[in-house]
């Protein structure tokens, strides 16, 4: 029995699940930030997470690729724990190289872009494919150019990040994540650091990705994007999922008073 099949039968993970969370808890010292989060993101779907700041949504996202260790619960990506191996009913922390290998399959886009500032756009895109996956240089460059074309920045390959606008930097960051052929892409408030007129170009690229069938988990304040592109909408508040549902229904007709209050403030 593969570990994936074992996990699936043990935790009742649906067949097509890409990200699966069950009772995920996370504490920083005595402060409990996540108090039992459940979530299933089917392969090829888009889940949008909204909520006030401090609700734990970014922390949850960072738990998915093990930038933060969970304090309890089950969190699987493509049927496997990211930072652990389940053997004989115990979770063994995995060695660093295996953790890196699994992380390479989970792309992440940050609020502050985090492009490598000492490298050109092209070097940003080919660094991990060459150094982590051992891809030949020529192949990595071809792929990078194709990705830059896709995000509309084919002419910026030789620029350094600080020569680009925020929206362009974020599109490069998305291309950099895509260069690793991830199974799932995590977005941590990708448009929150952008000037209002630059938000649209980033959302356009994300919409294009969603339409191409990429599995995405998006923490965002863009309710419009969640409504148009999201397959499910999760409203988090104070470390719990307050409400979840189909985006259109939930935005039009929120059930919980907290959701209603939050939506009335951001819409």
């Amino acid at each position: 029995m593969t570990s994936r099949a074992e996990n699936q039968s043990r935790f009742g993970v649906p067949q097509d699940s890409m990200v699966f969370a069950q009772g995920v808890r996370k504490s920083f010292g005595t402060l409990e930030v996540l108090k039992g989060i459940d979530l299933n993101v089917p392969s090829g779907s888009v889940a949008c997470i909204i909520g006030p700041s401090g609700s734990g949504k970014s922390t949850f996202l960072r738990c998915i690729n093990h930038l933060e260790e969970v304090s309890g619960g089950v969190l699987l990506v493509d049927g496997e724990f990211v930072g652990y191996d389940l053997r004989n009913g115990k979770l063994y922390e995995v060695r660093n190289d295996l953790l890196c290998k699994r992380r390479a399959d989970i792309g992440m886009v940050f609020q502050s872009f985090n492009l490598f500032s000492h490298m050109t756009v092209l070097e940003n895109l080919i660094e991990a494919p060459i150094m982590v996956k051992g891809m030949p240089r020529g192949e990595a460059r071809d792929k990078a150019h194709a990705l830059l074309e896709r995000v509309g920045l084919a002419d910026k390959a030789t620029c350094y990040p600080r020569q680009l606008s925020g929206g362009q930097q974020q599109r490069v960051a998305i291309a950099r994540a895509l260069a690793m052929n991830p199974k799932v892409l995590l977005f941590d408030e990708p448009t929150s650091a952008l000037d209002p007129e630059l938000v649209g170009e980033v959302l356009l690229v994300m919409r294009d990705l969603a339409e191409s069938g990429m599995t995405m988990v998006v923490v965002t304040h863009e309710i419009g994007f969640a409504r148009e592109v999201g397959d499910q909408l999760i409203f988090m508040d104070r470390g719990v999922v307050e409400e979840r549902g189909a985006p259109r229904d939930m935005i039009a007709n929120p059930q919980s008073p907290r959701t209603r209050e939050f939506l009335s403030r951001v819409l």
Partner: peptide
């Protein structure tokens, strides 16, 4: 900035790299 390390980590790079 710490974000550089996090971004590299999320791309699967190890500590030494």
């Amino acid at each position: 900035p710490g974000g550089q390390t996090e971004a590299a980590g999320s791309l699967g790079m190890n500590h030494r790299l």
